[in-house]
Amino acid sequence: MNGQRCEIGLAQPTHAPEAAEGPHTPGQGALFLLLLEDGTDEMRAAIDDQLDAVAAWWVKDPPEGPGFRQVEPDYPPTGWHDVERFLATSGIREVEPHVPLVLYVTGHGITSGATMHYAVLRDTLPERLLATGLRTTEVIVAALDSLSQDVLVIANMCESSDVGSELQAMERDLTHRTRSATLHVLATAGPQRKVPAGAFAAILREEY
């Protein structure tokens, strides 16, 4: 963060037609958590702290309201193939129009020499990002190009604002979405900036 927060709004709020009732409780959203560990105890502790803070915001119990249905991998992702398996099996790409969608991605991030942002997993080799890394936009676009009319993606990763130029380049591919849906991506760290441990969780708790 370090005073460098970046919000990329890909659409203006629109009034979409009312959707038919779906499988979820009316008013309930879908919260997808992608927690990318590097295998260290320090990262695991930081992720657990973030998870508690994020859940306090979006996962509610009555009488406060239905809140969001929480979805996360049932195994620690170690490589890009694990993340793609989660995206394929979690249903994130198939979230229905009337279901608000929040995707929270946290972990280490790095920007390549070609200014492409990558998520760093246990199997990622910084010197071989093309072969072993996961482009962060591949995860983000899974949410942006879902069917949901209201999408918020939070990328709580080092250097995460570098996804901005990649997303702007993809905007024409999302024209069908930006005309009918509200899509927002929030990056918590500027170029060449790290996210201080526990900072995002502390901000959420202050505002809760």
Score class of each variant (00 low, 15 high):
residue 2 N to K: 10
residue 2 N to G: 15
residue 3 G to D: 02
residue 3 G to W: 08
residue 6 C to Q: 08
residue 7 E to N: 04
residue 8 I to R: 00
residue 11 A to Q: 00
residue 11 A to E: 03
residue 11 A to L: 01
residue 13 P to N: 07
residue 15 H to L: 12
residue 21 E to R: 15
residue 21 E to G: 09
residue 24 H to E: 09
residue 24 H to C: 04
residue 26 P to V: 00
residue 28 Q to V: 01
residue 29 G to W: 00
residue 33 L to E: 03
residue 39 G to V: 07
residue 39 G to T: 07
residue 39 G to I: 05
residue 40 T to H: 05
residue 43 M to S: 13
residue 44 R to M: 09
residue 46 A to G: 09
residue 47 I to G: 07
residue 47 I to Q: 14
residue 54 V to P: 05
residue 56 A to T: 12
residue 58 W to D: 05
residue 61 D to S: 14
residue 63 P to R: 15
residue 63 P to H: 13
residue 64 E to N: 08
residue 70 Q to W: 12
residue 70 Q to G: 01
residue 73 P to M: 04
residue 76 P to I: 10
residue 78 T to M: 09
residue 79 G to L: 08
residue 81 H to K: 15
residue 82 D to M: 04
residue 83 V to W: 04
residue 85 R to W: 10
residue 87 L to S: 04
residue 87 L to K: 08
residue 88 A to N: 15
residue 91 G to W: 09
residue 93 R to W: 06
residue 98 H to P: 08
residue 105 V to Y: 02
residue 111 T to D: 11
residue 117 H to I: 13
residue 119 A to F: 02
residue 122 R to G: 01
residue 123 D to V: 08
residue 124 T to W: 13
residue 126 P to S: 06
residue 128 R to T: 06
residue 129 L to W: 14
residue 130 L to Y: 12
residue 130 L to V: 06
residue 132 T to Y: 11
residue 139 V to S: 00
residue 141 V to I: 13
residue 143 A to D: 07
residue 147 L to K: 15
residue 151 V to G: 00
residue 153 V to Q: 13
residue 161 S to W: 07
residue 162 D to I: 04
residue 164 G to M: 13
residue 164 G to L: 11
residue 167 L to D: 02
residue 167 L to P: 06
residue 168 Q to V: 11
residue 170 M to Q: 08
residue 170 M to R: 10
residue 172 R to S: 14
residue 174 L to A: 05
residue 175 T to L: 15
residue 179 R to C: 13
residue 179 R to A: 15
residue 181 A to V: 01
residue 181 A to H: 15
residue 182 T to Y: 14
residue 182 T to R: 15
residue 187 A to C: 12
residue 190 G to F: 11
residue 197 A to M: 12
residue 201 A to C: 11
residue 204 L to H: 08
residue 205 R to Y: 05
residue 208 Y to Q: 14
